[in-house]
């Protein structure tokens, strides 16, 4: 059943919704039904894999790697040999062999 949209709820109604959520999570596990858990998991994994981005690595500058994605990304920054994802910075380097 459709409920009121957020902007149509009074402060009291929103508080009740939030408090209900918190109270419920304190008294139940809220897990997903086993009958479609795996099906949905695999579906979402496949959808995420559809977001494949190809990275080209240019080694012509000697030890300086240049990474270039095949399209513009709004949530990942790629600069030289560095990739910034969220709060993480990945640095690609050539492996050193003894």
């Amino acid at each position: 059943m459709a409920q009121k949209r957020f902007d149509k709820m009074s402060d009291a109604e929103f508080d009740e919704l939030v408090n209900g959520f918190i109270d419920r999570t304190a008294t139940s596990y809220g897990e997903m039904p086993a009958e479609f858990f795996l099906d949905l998991l695999v579906e979402r994994m496949a959808a995420k894999v559809d977001e494949t981005v190809n990275l080209s690595i240019d080694l012509s500058g000697g030890d300086d790697l240049i990474i270039t994605p095949d399209r513009e990304l709004d949530d990942i920054v790629i600069r030289g040999n560095e990739i910034f994802v969220g709060t993480r910075r990945f640095v690609l380097k050539l492996a050193e062999h003894a």
Partner: peptide, 25 residues
């Protein structure tokens, strides 16, 4: 993983095993 978090993040199955909690009627 809890089942909800498992599906929410939906990362590839790269580990050997997964212990998961599910709801059953």
């Amino acid at each position: 993983k809890t089942s909800v978090y498992f599906v929410q993040v939906a990362t590839p199955l790269q580990h050997d095993f997964y212990i998961v909690r599910l709801f059953v009627q």
